[in-house]
Design a protein around this nucleic acid. Structure first.
Lengths: 204, 204
DNA sequence: ATTAGAAGTTGACACTGTCAAGATGAATGT
DNA sequence: ACATTCATCTTGACAGTGTCAACTTCTAAT
């Protein structure tokens, strides 16, 4: 029993299930995510996941939370390699946004589905993770927009505009295959963003 | 048997299944769409749909096609009630776009999922419907953008910009419940669209 | 050392999509 | 009018799914 071949405890089954689930989703789309297949990949029985997730819905929520972590990483990484001025930062974060949508398109789109998920139907751990990680990733884009925020009366929130623009672009044109539409090639987002009337000077 | 209670032929089962499927999806989200439940609503046996759709994937595709029809109707209807000038038309069509996303949010989001659907796995009828109806709805927004299209060298396609902006807005902020975010209320899209630098004069 | 509880297993159930085989009825050709 | 053909629908079966209950095994705290 020095190196027990099959310890009764997996050790970190919750993590293993999330990882397996992410892989399954990227391999075969949202419908390929199955509790039983995750269990099989983790080497446990089909009912073992029930001790870590409150049903399939919670595993999906945990995968969305993990997706938000990677999403935030992608934006942060892009921002760190850009010049520190607000324009360059916002551009980089949008690029990180779109990179993630391109490189993890299945998970990305799954993250922004109409998951009319009742928060209280999730186990506490997953619920906390989801709230924390999703708010953290939202905050990145939000922060990058604040230097351009309008202070005057009726100005429309910069954050809403940029978010709509980059999200729509990512959703519509970030499938790895569809790089063009009937009306010609899709331009890079860095060409589109300047077309928004943003405040050019940070708040004094 | 004068008025046969159960004619062997349903008469228009394909239509009945699409209608039932649309209802199911709007009632309970994408996962509530089930071949067997559609069959039950239409009053036929669980295997009857197989004679009209090449599997669940084809029924889903047919529902997406029908969604595109309603989508196009929503945009057309809004456009007809607006002034005939390009600005008012584009504004109205975007409003119709967002109205549809609000009123049929489940179907709308289902329409724009990563349906990596192999077109040749659909039955011929459904495949034709999907291509025809989706292209028709795309064409509406496309046409409304042409008066603003840049003719000069490196201009970015107006269609791509407007499409990204309105689609992102619809996706992010058109859930009937979420009408506000941590950063305040969501403005109407009619306030956002003018923030795009569009060509103000139609082509001479 | 005992015990309470967490972690995992086994077995069952209802529901799903899909297939095969048969039954029914409408349409067509002679 | 009759026979044939074929689309349509039914019945029955199968594997896969999520979920629940009962049980076993191990961990950890008293």
């Amino acid at each position: 029993m020095t190196d027990k071949q099959r310890p009764h405890h997996h050790g970190n089954l919750r993590e293993a299930l999330i990882t397996a689930g992410l892989d399954l989703m990227e391999e075969g789309g949202p419908d390929a995510l199955t509790l039983r297949k995750c269990a099989k990949r983790a080497g446990v029985s089909h009912a073992a996941p029930a001790h870590h997730f409150n049903g399939l819905i919670s595993l999906q929520a945990a995968i969305i939370a993990r997706g938000h972590q990677k999403f935030a990483d992608s934006m942060h990484h892009a921002a760190q390699q850009a010049a520190p001025c607000p324009q360059a930062q916002l551009n980089a974060i949008c690029a990180g946004y779109i990179d993630f949508a391109r490189n993890h398109s299945a998970v990305f789109k799954f993250m922004f589905l109409p998951h009319d998920v009742a928060m209280d139907s999730l186990d506490a751990t997953t619920q906390q993770e989801l709230i924390r990680d999703s708010q953290a990733s939202y905050q990145i884009l939000r922060n990058a927009c604040t230097p351009f925020e309008h202070n005057d009366s009726v100005g429309v929130s910069t954050e809403i505009m940029v978010w709509s623009l980059v999200h729509g672009y990512a959703m519509l044109f970030s499938s790895p295959d569809k790089t063009e539409t009937p009306s010609g090639p899709i331009p890079e987002f860095s060409q589109i963003l300047p077309k928004l009337k943003l405040k050019t000077e940070p708040a004094p």
